[in-house]
Computed example of a mutant assay.
Amino acid sequence: MARSVSAHRALVAFFLPWLLHCARLEAAAEGTPPWFWPWPPVGGGDDPYCLSWRVMVEANNAKGWRTVPAPCVGYVRGYMAWGQYYRDVGSVADQAAAYAAQISAPAADGLDAWVLDVDDTCLSNQPYYQAKQFGAYDPVAFKMWASRGVCPGIPAMQWLFQTLKGRGFRVFLVTGRDEETLGSSTAANLAAAGFSGYDRLIMRGTGYRGQTSVAFKSAVRRQLAAEGYRLRGNVGDQWSDLQGGCVGDRVFKVPNPMYFVP
């Protein structure tokens, strides 16, 4: 009997770490922590330094960086996958919705509008960047990822999108994705992720290739303004989504410590 118990304990000791590791990976992919895992996640890096670095990123004081600092890869992984990121995005959505509620009812002419970015504002690329250890941007690899059309929707932004539509605002989705190669897959991905009923999906066409995000998105917003739209709000995960011309009456920055777009 004693030998049987010992053998059982040996099997548990051998398989349990592997089972916990698999469960942790599965939960991280779903964006929710398993019930048994402690907070904060193990391997989060130098948290005080990395927290300060993330604040500098969100405040737009850290510019031009190409990769997450090596000591902060674990920290960013934990931030993105273990709850705080989703709470932060939810707070942004709450503030944007509260602001929208303060605006008088959209005019009968239907020209009160909002602009939303797509990547890591509406659709999450977290699985892709986490698999690459938040390394330097690889346009070929990212295009292959985006063409699959499997980016999950970001729940708080799904709610904000529906809230804005429900209040009668026009909603334009503006993305730097290439229209020729990613147009159909992006539209299908948005529909599958709960972003149906937008007024227009505006992507980077051949005339805008090579331009910075600020230049491209400013040109798009100026065109919308020229069409008579009043841009009441502008939501994006990069400061380059929110800078330049015709940025709108108010901008809302979604957190993103995974990458920087000039």
Rank of each mutant, 00 (worst) to 15 (best):
G168Y: 09
V150S: 13
W114R: 05
A101Q: 14
Y129V: 13
L116C: 12
P127W: 09
D120K: 04
V150C: 11
Q95T: 14
E179N: 07
G110L: 08
C122E: 00
M144A: 12
A96T: 06
A146V: 13
F142C: 09
P139Y: 09
P155T: 06
I154S: 00
A136S: 10
L160K: 10
W145E: 15
D112E: 11
F172S: 03
S104R: 15
L123G: 01
Y128D: 10
A96Q: 04
L164N: 06
G153M: 01
N125E: 10
K132D: 11
Y137F: 15
T163G: 01
D109W: 09
F134V: 08
Q158K: 12
T121R: 09
Q102R: 15
P139V: 08
G135V: 03
V171K: 06
R148Y: 05
A100M: 05
L123M: 05
A100T: 00
F134R: 05
I154K: 00
Q162T: 11
D119I: 02
E180G: 07
V174P: 00
I103F: 08
L123E: 01
M144R: 12
C122S: 11
I103G: 03
I103P: 01
A105D: 13
G176V: 07
L160C: 10
A100F: 00
D120Q: 12
V115N: 07
Y128I: 12
L160N: 10
A97V: 08
Q162Y: 04
A96Y: 02
Y128Q: 13
N125R: 09
L116I: 05
F134W: 14
G149H: 04
A146K: 13
A136V: 12
W159G: 04
W159P: 00
Y99H: 14
Q126S: 08
F169A: 02
A98Q: 14
D109A: 10
K143L: 10
W145D: 12
E180R: 13
P127M: 14
K165Y: 02
G168K: 08
A156I: 03
Q126F: 11
Q130W: 12
S124G: 07
A96S: 09
W159E: 11
G110W: 10
V115C: 14
L111W: 04
M157Y: 06
V118W: 01
Y99M: 08
A156T: 06
L173P: 03
S147I: 00
W159I: 03
L173D: 03
C122R: 00
A136I: 08
S147K: 06
A96C: 13
K165T: 02
